[in-house]
Design a protein around this nucleic acid. Sequence first.
DNA 1: AATGTCCTTGACAGCGCTGTCCGTTCAACG
DNA 2: CGTTGAACGGACAGCGCTGTCAAGGACATT
Lengths: 339, 339
Amino acid sequence: MSAKITIHDVARESGVSIKTVSRVLNREPNVKADTRDRVQAAVAALNYRPNISARSLAGSKAYLIGVFFDNPSPGYVTDVQLGAIARCRQEGYHLIVEPIDSTADVEDQVAPMLATLRMDGVILTPPLSDHPVVLAALEREGVPYVRIAPGGDMDRAPWVSMDDRLAGYEMTRHLIDLGHKDIGFIIGHPDHGASHRRHQGFIDAMREAGLAIRDDRVEQGWFSFRSGFEAAEKLLGGSDRPTAIFASNDDMALGVMAVANRMRLDVPAQLSIAGFDDTPGARITWPQLTTVRQPIQAMAGAAADMLMQGVEREAGAPPPSRLLDFELVVRESTGRAPS
Amino acid sequence: MSAKITIHDVARESGVSIKTVSRVLNREPNVKADTRDRVQAAVAALNYRPNISARSLAGSKAYLIGVFFDNPSPGYVTDVQLGAIARCRQEGYHLIVEPIDSTADVEDQVAPMLATLRMDGVILTPPLSDHPVVLAALEREGVPYVRIAPGGDMDRAPWVSMDDRLAGYEMTRHLIDLGHKDIGFIIGHPDHGASHRRHQGFIDAMREAGLAIRDDRVEQGWFSFRSGFEAAEKLLGGSDRPTAIFASNDDMALGVMAVANRMRLDVPAQLSIAGFDDTPGARITWPQLTTVRQPIQAMAGAAADMLMQGVEREAGAPPPSRLLDFELVVRESTGRAPS
DNA sequence: AATGTCCTTGACAGCGCTGTCCGTTCAACG
DNA sequence: CGTTGAACGGACAGCGCTGTCAAGGACATT
């Protein structure tokens, strides 16, 4: 175990006071370049690392960012963590992950943790981005937070999102451009705001193309494989079936794919299938899934940035929220409509 | 923002000194039951939560457990986190997740984090469980750690694992019992110790049944969908093909499934496919995958427990390592061998 | 030369808690 | 009845750092 070296050691080594060392460490202004260099040399020579507990006890920063999630998709969760960490590390911040169980008492889970760890900020992932109890607890404790892809109440706090409506629109257009006229749609989990926006994009594209949206072509799903599977069974059950199905996320699209395989439908010759998210699973099927790449890591990184910069909404000023770009990923599961 | 209440407030409220409050909080002995109750009442009344930074600065515990991972499987990572958190929460500990990029300088990633955050312990997931640089850094800094499913050097530190060899053996037996005699095997990532053990189980079962293991029936994989896909192409390429394929993890088994679908092979009538891990993906195919359920959450929970109990190996004493139970999950992807 | 202003630096007081050490009480013992 | 030691409670000194405040020096202004 290497001996613990403190700021005092650095101060002695470089011949200044500990306060000056602290200044250099925190990139405060008004330190002579010469002094700064000496301190930095000492830091490097001693391999000194400031103790985070002491910093957060004495100062106002905790160097800790929380990530709350209650998301069934592990790929999504991991991507958020990866994206956030990448940014945090540069600034010496660390990530505390806290799974929240929405089915249990949320207040009991959130309140104690907020009080013990005074985190500098929290990243909320859907569906927690819209959870009233979580938002209220955060606000009560005065902990800044950024919501990823929230569903509504957009002025309440800063957020990072992508244009789900446009993405839904473009995917639908992609299908229409391939000659599809009879397209089925599976709506996502109603608690996720993105679900409604994707659905709206579908509606907009169909309307614009003058195509009818039959009631029996739209099913409610829950973002799970099973719900996609069941929706597909209904959609493909009769002899009169759509030539394409657009599912609001990949897991559900995979469910559709499973039904298609089971019915021995040729994808995409007889049925085109489109997903959304570009999770790892999208490539784990044959044919690979046409989908929308969500910039999950980028969104999480942006959220972490906003938190570290101490996002504080000035009264009346708009939150510095950001809309990131998505990308249509066309693979093999979509093709020309059968004639 | 609720006013910050400290240990002093509790002490005043309950009419004792702060030290006594501290004793109650830390469940130290030698406090009269009556006093303890008074203090606890005050804690509850004031809704007091000890500040974790102050605790770790003053004391020896940091109330922080790290989880290091560099695992391509998001399902695995999330399960580990969930399992560890469940235990940590009860004890007031929190989880710091740190993805490690093995392709970059590992020392640079690990050393600074160990110095700034003095974590009470670290949970290592494969393949990091066997990473020499990580282990060395942890030991140098005197941070206790528990390895999940390490590959070798078992006496070096405590670990939690499952009997991969036995699981590999039992899955192979399952196939043999279904009448399969010509079984293909895809080995896992060579950096993961579990890969070798699963392979050994396969060999043992085949030998025991007096079945030949043909060289061209065993392929090296990397635990990824793609590597499973490629291995399956080789295995199923000729006219002479095995009646079953046992892949060392689910992702690779899904790759095999994709090849089978593409070749229009009927699973399991013409080809049985077995996986390993029971990741969410195992249910995301049709037919669903026969696989081995790894007690990932339980292993992570046990690891967290060991860390929190301050696992310290006494000189000469065996580490309190634990082997947990697995479960064979038979679904639809395996069936009787074609006659 | 005197004054004002900025830049640079340091002394010092905690942040909220635990570890150490010591004093007090009280029961059981010789 | 005095003695001992366990049980119990408290005073105090930091843990390693940052915030505050003020001092000293450099430089520009009058």
